[in-house]
């Protein structure tokens, strides 16, 4: 794999994480438990879709085959998506959505902070822009983990269940493969393993304050970064891509 191909793959991962989670959050629009939450979830979704455009446009540019963000988002099949498994997990109840968000935001924040120092100026500027938005996402999702964890008996039970269920999808965030190693070698991206300690530190401190227990280390589900997904991604794409598939090149 050439450096250029590795960079394209890496950019797809960044773009697809934002796209799939942005889509998941948009599913809450009109269904959130309160108006403020509806607005907040849609706002976070909007930020992530904006970041998707930046990452996937850059990916298309690097690939050099004339694909832009829209073509990459609407015209690839599940096997070609490179998002981590965590972001495609269903919304579940509000606790599941916020636990997923907190795990992702904390990691996303740490990753973007490193990418803002990338040797590739195009990566650095998108990361610096996104970092400002993700700072707010993290503050909010952490708040909800605290509030539900240290809330009523019912909210505590649901948040603990959400954490226990999603925990196995967090291992993939910190595993390096040949693409991550190529990025590290070129000074373009960080070693994923190096993000684990600060991530775990924040998660532990938050759980402690929220009276939640940290799950025991166990089997980590992996594969999304290589295009091996759970059954959920196909349903997301059916929804996301329907219009472009049914009416090719439709615009409005």
């Amino acid at each position: 794999m050439s450096d250029q191909e590795a960079l394209f793959e890496y950019l797809l991962r960044l773009g697809d994480n934002a796209l799939v989670l942005g889509h998941r959050l948009s599913e809450w629009c009109g269904h959130a438990p309160a108006l403020e939450e509806d607005l907040a979830l849609s706002n976070v979704a909007l930020d992530l879709i904006g970041q998707t455009q930046l990452w996937l446009n850059l990916a298309g540019e690097v690939e050099g085959k004339g694909r832009d963000a829209d073509k990459l988002a609407y015209l690839r099949d599940a096997r070609d998506f490179r998002n981590i498994l965590l972001v495609e997990q269903p919304n579940g109840d509000f606790a599941v959505t916020m636990a997923r968000q907190f795990f992702f935001d904390a990691w996303h924040y740490l990753l973007l902070r490193e990418l803002a120092g990338s040797k590739d100026g195009r990566i650095a500027e998108i990361a610096a822009k996104s970092l400002k938005e993700v700072t707010y996402h993290l503050e909010r999702s952490r708040d909800w983990v605290l509030r539900l964890g240290d809330g009523t008996e019912e909210s505590h039970r649901r948040m603990q269940a959400a954490i226990d269920d999603l925990w196995m999808y967090t291992g993939e965030l910190f595993e390096a493969d040949e693409i991550d190693r190529a990025m590290l070698r070129e000074g373009l991206g960080p070693d994923p393993a190096a993000l684990h300690e600060p991530w775990l530190g924040l998660v532990k401190a938050t759980f402690e304050e929220a009276t939640l227990s940290l799950p025991q280390p166990g089997w980590a589900q992996r594969g999304g970064k290589r295009g091996i997904h759970s059954e959920h991604l196909g349903y997301i794409l059916a929804d996301l891509q329907f219009l472009q598939r049914a009416y090719p090149n439709a615009t409005w």
Binding site: E36, L39, A40, V44, D47, E133, Y136, R140
Partner: peptide
């Protein structure tokens, strides 16, 4: 603060 997010991305309620 009522919510970290408001009527547009740049505002809080």
């Amino acid at each position: 603060r009522v919510s970290e997010f408001g009527s547009t991305p740049c505002k809080a309620q």
